[in-house]
């Protein structure tokens, strides 16, 4: 079956003018020859340090910023000629929930305001707002002022606002950047829920590597306006040979068992030396249980188990280093 793309952009360039002195100014490439394809229904992460160009790129894809070069389509609409149609079909949540949230209106009044602005059918407004308040666990806070609820709840309110209209694409710009761990976790869970239950394509920017790891089907690593790597997290690890490690100290293992383990999914390499079984895996949290189960079935004695996860962080750093060296 042919892959359906929500977004497909090619060789996008965006230059910003920087004033140096009163008259003199120079340009720098905020986005430098970026090509990207995002499938319908996926959670796609733009990962990069501050100033990498993530926000600029999502603003271009959302039709809020005109690119200086390249081509692209969002939901089959041309990035240049049909930017109004693109804007009507996408939703966006800014890094801070305060954008679009009026602290003088209650949670519900805020949603009522935006429901009219987004031209939601008059007969459906109340029902939709109720649905979203329930969906995002805000129902009991509907009469609260935004200032009197937590930052995480305010971020959920911003997400609720963006979901008032059932748009197929949702852009989240650093959705958890100003939240504490608990609030961030709740928002991440809702992002997964929105993607799973509503089938919305989500493009999020983040500089939290664990967030990308937890949420994203694929990530693009950006640096200085360029995409230096774009793939699934597992493929990125494979490419950079950054795997999780599993070390099991145990009694002698027959060779056929080692061969069997080597053929499993996620297992990249399996060796046995001096009572030490070394496994390189793409997902150690899956492999560990399967390997231990098999060793126990073989009545082998297990003395110790150690794991070392190759985080996306190490992949990210390696990718950045490789990217910078090649630029």
């Amino acid at each position: 079956m042919a892959v359906e793309y929500a977004i497909k952009i090619n060789n996008i360039i965006k230059k910003y003018k920087i004033k140096q002195r009163a008259i003199k100014s120079r340009y720098f490439n905020a986005i430098d020859d970026v090509s990207l394809s995002i499938e319908k229904g996926e959670i796609f992460g733009l990962l990069g340090t501050n100033g990498a160009g993530k926000t600029t790129l999502i603003k271009i894809m959302a039709g809020l910023l005109e690119a200086d070069g390249g081509t692209g389509k969002v939901l089959k609409y041309d990035l240049y000629k049909e930017h109004k149609k693109i804007r009507a079909k996408v939703s966006l949540v800014a890094p801070t929930a305060d954008v679009g949230t009026d602290n003088n209106l209650t949670v519900k009044q805020n949603l009522e305001f935006w429901a009219v602005v987004y031209n939601l059918d008059k007969n459906l407004r109340a029902q939709r707002i109720d649905e979203l308040l329930l969906f995002l666990d805000l129902k009991e806070y509907e009469d609260f002022w935004p200032m009197s609820i937590s930052a995480g709840m305010r971020q959920r309110l911003a997400i609720a606002r963006s979901l008032l209209v059932k748009n197929p694409i949702l852009f989240l710009d650093e959705p958890t950047v100003k939240l504490d761990a608990k609030g961030a976790k709740a928002v991440r869970n809702f992002i997964k829920k929105i993607n799973k239950d509503l089938g919305i394509t989500i493009i999020l920017t983040t500089h939290f590597i664990f967030e990308a790891e937890e949420l994203c089907d694929r990530v693009a690593i950006m640096d200085k306006g360029k995409i230096i790597s774009c793939d699934t997290i597992n493929n990125l690890r494979k490419r950079l040979k950054k795997y999780d490690l599993l070390e099991i100290e145990c009694s002698s293992i027959p060779k056929d068992i080692i061969d069997q383990i080597s053929k499993w999914d996620y297992i990249v390499k399996c060796t046995y030396n001096n009572n030490l079984l070394n496994i390189e895996s793409l997902k150690v949290e899956v492999s560990i249980f399967e390997v231990l189960k098999l060793l126990r079935q073989q009545d082998l004695e297990i003395y110790s188990v150690r794991t070392k996860e190759a985080s996306l962080e190490s992949v990210f750093i390696s990718t950045l280093n490789n990217g910078r060296n090649s630029i």
Partner: peptide, 13 residues
């Protein structure tokens, strides 16, 4: 300064 121009532009207004 409130950051809402983007949100208004994403509406049909």
């Amino acid at each position: 300064w409130g950051g809402t121009m983007d949100l208004y532009l994403l509406s049909p207004l």
